[in-house]
Design a protein around this nucleic acid. Sequence first.
DNA 1: CGCGACGTTGATTTGCCTCAACGATTGTGG
DNA 2: CCACAATCGTTGAGGCAAATCAACGTCGCG
Lengths: 195, 195
Amino acid sequence: MTSTDNLKALTDHMRRFITLDTAEESLLANYIQFRDVRNKEHLLVSGHICKANYFVIKGCFRMYSHTDSGTEQIVQFGIDNWWIADYTSLDSQQPSFFNIQALEPGVVATLERPAQEELFTRIPKLERYFRHILQRAYAATLMRFHYIFSQSGEERYRHFNSLFPDFVQRIPQYMLASYLGFTPEFLSKIRAKKN
Amino acid sequence: MTSTDNLKALTDHMRRFITLDTAEESLLANYIQFRDVRNKEHLLVSGHICKANYFVIKGCFRMYSHTDSGTEQIVQFGIDNWWIADYTSLDSQQPSFFNIQALEPGVVATLERPAQEELFTRIPKLERYFRHILQRAYAATLMRFHYIFSQSGEERYRHFNSLFPDFVQRIPQYMLASYLGFTPEFLSKIRAKKN
DNA sequence: CGCGACGTTGATTTGCCTCAACGATTGTGG
DNA sequence: CCACAATCGTTGAGGCAAATCAACGTCGCG
């Protein structure tokens, strides 16, 4: 992957929602850094300030919190073409509640907060792009609440599996269990029943 | 409440995130309708297309879905100064999955979809305003996932109660139970234990 | 090779649901 | 203005989905 390819991945995604001419595209490039991320590397550690908004060009990330009982709770996955950040921390520049960690080697586009603010003044329609991104993310979480509360653990697993069969293969089972809201042991028992 | 007061409630909220001059404010007024909402009135019924984005000036609303077992599942409440809509349906103009209903008499500002699109071209910084709104809403739902999965039903209730003691008084208990993800009977038993 | 991370399996426990019956309150029509 | 129904909350008995705890197998990797 060249840096040009990486930029193209990002601008292609932006063009799903807004138009971008080549001048804007190269202006954008000045505000973005591309970064190779190693497996298990953290983009954000809770308690630290979230410095940037990350666009996943390649790879798979998890956003998770620490529970009182000391376990880790996954609240969100981020794969190709997703933006991921602790927006509360990014916005307020206060310590973050969540962690963001790579689950495999990957590449992200980094948009640091001051760069993002300046970029918005230069290319105001990027506000529109992010409005769409966040609107979709928010709508998706509301659907997720519906499924969490209306389905049993087994139903959630089978439903998620049917929606994202290839994604399930990419991540350890105990992480999927955490995301779906039950224990790894329980997931193992579901899978033992039949397939 | 006069129509001027209603407009002021909306523009005051917008000014928390963007600047608005009086010309823009009166331009905005051309694209908004204010509407009194009766108790139990629906702003949106599932299966219908979500025609507008609603800003709650006064009152309390619930957004809910129907589960396979025939019960209603509340995924979100909307009170004063919240925008509420089925954004998936609003964006795609496909039938909505969710319902939106008033839980008390209220007043909303209605921003219909064509009006919203035209308004964004006239006052582009409103894209920024909605980006902030959605960013906060999305961040709040991620925190909610953390609490759902890391706390017991009783802990969720006590925590929610301590955060929003006055809101809890405004709504029937069975709706709070639905939002928190357990049964009304269980909530009743929690309350019986101690205050 | 040996250790740590991950998955499996079984026994036991428990948080919460289901179902049913029963007050209390509200509102509505005669 | 009262009678009655509907809505909402409470309480209890019994049951089930999923957690907990513990032991063990396996694989990948340093």
